[in-house]
């Protein structure tokens, strides 16, 4: 548990996550108020990473629910394990006939069988999916609901019910209430407008691309082997590329990948050739790469001209 905002910052830092003051404040608030966090922002700025770091820092288990179009309750909440039930019925056939065997009438037999129903509709045959797992867990967990904007609007409505009272009703078993309240992080890449109700319930956190300085810190922390001058150059180029109108701007994750790649090929400095060879690590569209090459080489030419 965190006792102060500074605690949060240092806890997350221990998980190699550099949290801005804003992020730390929101996490602290979520912890104290028991509210979900809704994190929005461009892809690859560390929304998912935040929840991992949070779980790591507090020693909680991270349960992840990846959303996609068509995700429904049975995949998110629970399912009955039919196959296992079938198997048990087969194996327990003798025992069952024993129970039913002594019955005089059909009605009696049915009654006796009904008495054993609980065996088959018990937790043993319930296959908990992420949401139920988070609720049923004995120890508090961090529940990451990733890319909620990809799920259908109806799933969002269903999620609201769960997030507001942290209980689930399974018709055969009754209501299952959360033993410990999970900390929830919802992430969204903002591909569609989320419902007002969901936003109302959550603490809102907009994570944008980091500034040059903090991105440099991230690279230094994640890839300590890279020489400082190359790291700086690397981050500067990425920051510059984000300013261009590209199909897909390079994310922080890709900056880190790039830095790792540079270490792997043992680059001492970032010359034209290395840059050309490794640009594909941060840019994933051919047209973007062409464009970046043009812009970067033009920049270089201008620098030379000045000298």
């Amino acid at each position: 548990m965190f006792n102060s905002i500074a605690d949060v910052t240092s806890g997350l830092l221990g998980q190699q996550y550099i949290a801005s003051d804003e992020i730390a404040t929101v996490v602290y608030l979520a912890e104290k108020m028991g509210k979900p966090i809704l994190a929005e922002g461009p892809a690859g700025v560390g929304k998912t990473e935040l929840s991992k770091a949070w779980a790591g820092a507090t020693g909680r288990e991270l349960i992840r629910l990846q959303c996609y179009e068509g995700l429904d309750e049975s995949k998110a909440l629970y399912e009955w394990e039919y196959a296992k039930q079938m198997l048990y019925t087969q194996l327990l056939r003798d025992k069952l006939s024993q129970i039913v065997g002594e019955a005089q009438t059909l009605g009696q037999a049915a009654d006796r069988l009904a008495g054993e129903e609980n065996v088959f509709f018990s937790m043993r045959f319930l296959l908990p999916r992420p949401l139920l797992r988070a609720i049923m867990s004995d120890k508090p967990v961090v529940l990451l609901i990733d890319e909620i904007d990809r799920a259908d609007a109806e799933f969002e409505a269903f999620l609201l019910e769960i997030l507001s009272d942290f209980q689930v009703s399974v018709p055969e078993l009754g209501t299952l209430k959360a033993r410990t309240q999970p900390m929830v992080v919802l992430t969204s890449n903002n591909t569609r407008e989320l419902s007002e109700a969901l936003k109302r319930r959550a603490l809102y956190l907009f994570i944008d691309y980091p500034s040059l300085e903090s991105e440099l810190n991230i690279v230094r922390m994640r890839v300590p082997d890279l020489s400082p001058s190359v790291a700086k150059q690397c981050v500067e180029i990425v920051q510059r590329l984000r300013g261009l109108d590209l199909k897909k701007s390079p994310s922080v994750a890709e900056t880190v990948d790039w830095a790792k790649a540079l270490v792997a090929i043992n680059a001492r400095h970032l010359d034209d050739k290395t840059l050309n060879d490794t640009l594909t690590v941060i840019l994933k569209h051919e047209s973007d790469i062409q464009r970046a090459r043009r812009v970067l080489s033009a920049g270089k030419a201008r620098d030379v001209g000045v000298r």
Binding site: I5, D21, E22, T25, V26, Y28, L29, K32, M33, L38, K199, R200, A202, L203, Y204, L205
Partner: peptide, 21 residues
């Protein structure tokens, strides 16, 4: 929870709870 002593944190707290767009 946050208190009012640190103005930036106070601001962030208000922002997270009030501003959703």
């Amino acid at each position: 929870v946050i208190g009012v002593l640190d103005r930036d944190r106070f601001k962030n707290a208000l922002k997270a709870t009030l501003i959703k767009e």
